[in-house]
C-alpha cells in the first residue's frame, strides 16, 4: 500500500487537468441542450465518471454543432 502513497503526489497535475476538463465539459453540457447523440444525463455521467477521456469524447463527438 505504501507504494500507492509514494506514487500519488506525482499524479496531482494529472488530476488537475482532469478536473479542468470535467468542469469545462459540465459547463458546456449545462449551457447547450443539443448533442449529436445521447442526452444531458448520459453526457454528464460520462464526463464526470470517465477520467480525462470522458470530456474529450464529449468535446470531439458529443458536442452539438451550434456553438
Amino acid at each position: 500500500m505504501n507504494i500507492l502513497f509514494e506514487i500519488l503526489p506525482f499524479l496531482v497535475p494529472v488530476l488537475l487537468v482532469d478536473i479542468a476538463l470535467a468542469v469545462a465539459a459540465v459547463r458546456h453540457i449545462l449551457r447547450h441542450p443539443r448533442y449529436r447523440f445521447g442526452n444531458r444525463t448520459i453526457w454528464l455521467v460520462i464526463v464526470v465518471v470517465i477520467l480525462i477521456f470522458g470530456p474529450i469524447i464529449y468535446f470531439v463527438f458529443g458536442k452539438g454543432e451550434n456553438e
Binding site: L21, A24, I56, K63
Partner: peptide
C-alpha cells in the same frame, strides 16, 4: 471556443 486547444493541451500534458 470549440475546445480544440483545451483538448490538445490536456492530451499532450498528460
Amino acid at each position: 471556443k470549440n475546445y480544440r486547444f483545451l483538448i490538445l493541451f490536456a492530451v499532450f500534458l498528460i
